[in-house]
């Protein structure tokens, strides 16, 4: 008997002895958040939760504000990597050398770069989280947002949801996804949180929030 057959036979026998009644899963938790997706309140809460976990939030009123905001946070950087599909105009005012990850840069190359600029698939206001989808052209493969020490993430208000269930409903797990909540941190010393371990130690978020009519 192969290991596969034997493990499955054991589990079937055990399951039948222990019981095979399938329960109904109660889904009466909130599946929609307290604030509507893209609402001012959702964006406000996201700003609070991001800031609480040591990300720095920069608000701009429209897409035209993005290049200056990115240039400002990258003022001290000499080199930056961008995923293949990041809008070129976003980097229009950056003084640092811009390297497109196309063809893909080596890990050693990435390690020599100061910063990375990406978009995001969705952001979660309740938790201060944004999600990177490696298959999205403006987010790129996982290594580029991991190796450089400074991550600049551009988030559109329309992509901000309140809750975790709303975010997962917008995501397809076809490719790799990375949920990011603040800069890298650890709670391993006396269970207190300190920021800055192996992932990017500096996290800037540029939030595009159109003024309300």
């Amino acid at each position: 008997m192969s290991a596969r057959e034997e493990v499955l036979a054991r589990l079937r026998a055990a399951r039948d002895v222990g019981g095979s009644t399938v329960p109904d899963v109660p889904r009466d938790y909130h599946r929609t958040g307290v604030h509507a997706p893209g609402s001012a309140a959702a964006v406000e809460r996201l700003t609070e939760t991001l800031t609480d976990y040591r990300a720095t939030v920069h608000r701009v009123g429209d897409l035209d504000g993005v290049p200056a905001a990115i240039a400002a946070v990258l003022a001290g950087s000499s080199s930056v990597v961008a995923p293949p599909g990041l809008p070129g105009e976003w980097l229009g005012e950056v003084t640092a050398t811009v390297r497109r990850d196309d063809p893909p840069l080596s890990v050693a190359d990435l390690d020599r770069l100061d910063a990375v600029v990406t978009g995001a698939a969705v952001a979660i206001a309740d938790t201060g989280t944004f999600v990177l989808d490696a298959l999205a052209p403006d987010q790129g493969r996982r290594a580029i947002s991991l190796v450089p020490d400074h991550h600049v993430c551009v988030i559109r208000a329309a992509d901000v949801v309140s809750s975790v269930p709303e975010a997962l409903a917008r995501l397809a797990p076809d490719g790799p996804l990375t949920f990011v909540s603040g800069p890298s941190a650890t709670s391993d010393i006396e269970l207190d949180r300190v920021e800055g371990v192996h992932g990017p130690r500096r996290l800037d978020v540029v939030l595009i929030v159109p003024p309300r009519a």
Partner: peptide
């Protein structure tokens, strides 16, 4: 005791060009 841990990774099998 965090609203969300700093990083959650998910992947499905092998993705050409990533990882």
């Amino acid at each position: 005791g965090e609203r969300m841990n700093p990083y959650t990774s998910s992947w499905s099998g092998v993705t050409p060009g990533d990882g």
